[in-house]
Design a protein around this nucleic acid. Sequence first.
DNA 1: TCTATAATTCGATTATATTCGAACTATAGA
DNA 2: TCTATAGTTCGAATATAATCGAATTATAGA
Lengths: 103, 103
Amino acid sequence: MRQIKHPSIDQVELTDIMYALSEPTRLEIVGRLANAGRKLTCGELDLNRPKSSMSHHFKILRAAGLVETLIEGTEHMNALRIAEIEQKFPGVLQSVLTALNKS
Amino acid sequence: MRQIKHPSIDQVELTDIMYALSEPTRLEIVGRLANAGRKLTCGELDLNRPKSSMSHHFKILRAAGLVETLIEGTEHMNALRIAEIEQKFPGVLQSVLTALNKS
DNA sequence: TCTATAATTCGATTATATTCGAACTATAGA
DNA sequence: TCTATAGTTCGAATATAATCGAATTATAGA
């Protein structure tokens, strides 16, 4: 069961996080993953966009270090790397999530 | 003495802020404005880039609502709109500034 | 009114992102 | 071994952004 590679937390750059969060679809994905409180498949998110577009956005979220994807069978389970990100950049992701939930 | 137009704080979007902060030069400008604790002219920042490039980045920072520019004579004095941004998106800008000062 | 200074705007070039259909890969289960 | 399912990768089109020299605007001061 081959797994997807992710950057280690010390490779994660603040600019990459900012960039990943600057796109509405990706911000929506991040918000839903946070609120779900459990791992979600790409399909469960259902933002009404083609699979290839979703895949593209997940790739960027992974590269930024925001999302971790575990392959389980035919599904890809996605989770926010919130604890690690908070440790490295305290408050950054948390405050964005708070702002998201207010709007 | 004509002044530059800025968005009102309720027009400011989280994605625009994230986008503005996703570019290293702009992040640097924001960090210096925060640390200076006073208004700075574009020239004082001196990031070793052509004036037209700096002007472009300031335009984006202004449009995102992050920077306010007051014209005084021939100089443009720039300040972070930190109080307003903090009120609307608590912790977002502050945590980014903290992360910047650690790196 | 002339000159110097500060910064913006314009315009062209190049680079980077987004979008999405079609083809492909990997796994589970019949 | 066949089929269905979940997602990725490819490739091409389109859109958006970054870069920077040259021209322009606005002001201060001589």
